[in-house]
Simulated scan of single mutants.
Amino acid sequence: MEEKLVSLKDVTFKYDGQDRNAVDGVSFDVSKGEWLAIVGHNGSGKSTLAKLLNGLQFPGFGSILIGDMELSEETVWDVRKKVGMVFQNPDNQFVGTTVQDDVAFGLENLGVQQQMMVKRVQDALNKVKMNEFLDQEPHHLSGGQKQRVAIAGVLALQPDIIILDEATSMLDPRGREEVLDTVRELKEEKILTVISITHDLEEAAKADRIIVLNQGRLYREGTPDEIFHLEDELVGLGLDIPFSVKLSKSLREKGVDLAGSHLTEEELVKDLCALNSRI
């Protein structure tokens, strides 16, 4: 039986002065080792949901359980030991003068012993392949490298769950792929349960499951393949289908013998190469 790490039940939140709920009766679970992507257009409630999951806001109604703890103002600091968050702009998270100082910052605040701190910093940077940049100044790094250091800072704290709040939206394609590859590897090693908040369906295609939000409500839920079959509905919500899915559909409509949709360009290229070898 899958272990539930996160459970939301009828979660509702409204900002002061707003007419409608930013999050409106949302319920879902996240299992240990799962990668869940939460997608939606601007104003759909996904960023508010990220803040609720990390205790930056608290529900006006409903409950959020992290493990066996209900998130509240009394438990928020204990919950944050289990949940790490990587934000949109990594520069806003940097506080150290070097990469290793920055990754160590959270551990220093927790009073971790020096010997253990050094080991955890090195382990975290090894996991994100940034161990050769220990003494580099963070602002000299590329966008993708900065975001990997931000992830290392979270990993060093050894959380059960990592939340990516639009964490790749400011990166170029190469930097985005670097970060997503890192997250995928960590997830496959069973180190992390991942919740990614994004408007980018190409990023969401990497996840095990997708939740679509619309006007604060859970609109659809399913695997990436199931969600991308709702192409017209998603476009109507202001979301853009991944290029590989659109191209795969167009090729099939023109008579190219391809089976199913292709969630990534790599999948599509592989099938096209296999098709070419049979011709």
Rank of each mutant, 00 (worst) to 15 (best):
E70T: 13
S47H: 09
V86F: 04
Q115D: 14
G67K: 04
L251P: 15
T223I: 09
G84M: 07
F61P: 01
D91Y: 11
A207M: 07
L237G: 07
G106N: 04
T193Y: 13
V112I: 09
V23Y: 07
V118D: 12
V212R: 03
K32N: 01
P138A: 01
Q93Y: 01
Q158I: 03
E108H: 10
M170G: 05
A22F: 08
Q122D: 12
S47T: 08
E73C: 12
N109C: 07
K246M: 12
V112C: 08
D181W: 00
K129A: 09
T97W: 14
L275I: 13
N214Q: 12
P138S: 00
I162Y: 02
V112A: 00
Y219T: 00
Q100L: 00
G62Y: 15
V121I: 06
S261D: 14
K146L: 13
I161W: 13
K146Q: 10
H199G: 14
G25L: 02
A274R: 15
L53S: 04
G43Y: 03
G216I: 11
G67R: 01
A207Y: 09
S63T: 15
H140W: 13
K14V: 13
E231I: 03
V76Q: 07
E178W: 02
L251W: 05
E233G: 06
E266T: 11
K46W: 05
R174W: 11
V23P: 02
L8P: 09
L36H: 02
D181C: 02
T75D: 12
K127G: 02
A207R: 03
L263A: 00
I195Y: 05
H139T: 15
Y219C: 05
K4H: 12
L268D: 14
V128Y: 04
L53H: 14
Q145P: 12
M170D: 04
K4S: 15
A22E: 06
G236K: 06
E226P: 01
Q158H: 15
V103Q: 01
M1Q: 13
H41C: 07
E34Y: 05
N92G: 02
S277K: 08
D240A: 14
R120P: 02
T223R: 03
T223P: 08
A207C: 08
I162N: 00
R184L: 07
S248T: 14
G236W: 10
D68I: 06
G255Q: 06
Q136L: 11
D208G: 10
D102C: 03
A37G: 12
E3S: 09
N131G: 06
Q100S: 03
H262S: 06
I38G: 03
L258S: 00
E253P: 02
F58N: 00
H262L: 02
E266N: 15
N21A: 14
